[in-house]
């Protein structure tokens, strides 16, 4: 049933001589879908193409059975929360929602009902009379989700939503996304591995425009099993270990250092441990020739 899927076939996109996306094939089904990749991997380009804010290059995209070229139809069934957004600062929250609801072509009665329902859902109902400029970063993101859901979209596209949020707001935001994903496709693009781990069952990894991985989180973890180690070492050993292994985390206690690192062969004196998604992601990037990780930790530890 294509009605509940996004099907991307052979998608490429170039900006002059830079290939932002290169032959991407992807099927995204209902629920949370994580798009992981470093900055500049092509995530935002893909998000913008899906939100009809950028023309696609080569390839085909169908969103819930609608070809991406049918811009108006696509905009009717998608909600978009951009990476860097705000609203008119002097508008009250409910006014901003009303304005965006009008632009979405929602009738007055329905618009008011949806606004109240969504503001309640994102815990902003009691702040509805406050001006947008008075909101904290986290509240603004929640308002962002509410506005993106105004037209009750089949697809919600969320680009780097947790950057800059404090841990409490980040957790609250992730939970909100999970709730929302029960009834639609939610594409979460991020370079923060923790966000994906906490929310997504299926993920894709993009690097330099190419799709490196497309599958479940469990499969990705399985691929890393037996290749993640922990070791307690003396502080003086750290430079040597850094050269030898790809370290994914490290913390210090007095003169002792607790390291977590990747290795394809057994390491004497180190214990094999359960991989987390960050380990698996790093390992996957490395296996696929992303060598810049050697210089230090990647992702967010």
């Amino acid at each position: 049933m294509d009605e509940n899927k996004i099907i991307i076939t052979g998608l490429s996109k170039s900006y002059w001589n830079k290939r932002a996306l290169d032959q991407v094939d992807l099927v995204i089904e209902q629920g949370m879908f994580g798009l992981l990749g470093r900055n500049g991997a092509g995530k935002t380009t893909l998000m913008k193409i899906l939100a009809t804010l950028l023309p696609k290059g080569e390839g085909k995209i169908s969103v819930c059975g609608v070809p991406i070229e049918h811009t108006k139809e696509i905009r009717k069934i998608t909600g978009y929360l951009p990476q860097d957004f705000s609203m008119y600062p002097s508008m009250r929250i409910e006014e901003a929602m009303d304005y965006l609801g009008i632009l979405s072509g929602i009738e007055t009665k329905e618009r008011r009902a949806r606004t109240e329902q969504l503001l309640r859902r994102v815990n902003l109902l009691e702040h509805r009379k406050e001006k947008v400029k008075a909101l904290s970063g986290g509240m603004k993101r929640r308002l962002g989700i509410a506005q993106a859901l105004l037209n009750d979209p089949k697809v919600l596209i969320v680009d780097e939503p947790t950057a800059g949020l404090d841990p409490e707001e980040r957790i609250r935001f992730r939970n909100l996304l999970c709730e929302v994903a029960e009834e639609r496709i939610v594409i979460l693009s991020t370079h923060i591995v923790g966000d994906i781990e906490a929310t997504c069952e299926k993920i894709a990894i993009l690097n330099e425009g190419q799709l490196l991985y497309n599958g479940t989180v469990d499969e990705l973890l399985e691929k890393a099993r037996g290749q993640v180690y922990t070791k307690e070492a003396d502080r003086r050993e750290v430079p040597r270990l850094k050269k030898e292994f790809r370290i994914t985390s490290m913390h210090t206690q007095n003169n002792r250092v607790y390291l977590r690192f990747l290795s394809e062969t057994p390491v004497p004196g180190a214990q094999v441990c359960e991989p987390n998604i960050e380990d698996a992601y790093m390992l996957y990037l490395y296996r696929n020739g992303v060598r810049s990780l050697d210089d230090g930790l990647g992702g967010e530890s």
Binding site: T52, R75, Y80, G105
Partner: peptide
């Protein structure tokens, strides 16, 4: 706010 407006149906 541009992208929020651009992505609407209007």
């Amino acid at each position: 706010m541009s992208q929020l407006v651009y992505s609407r149906k209007v």
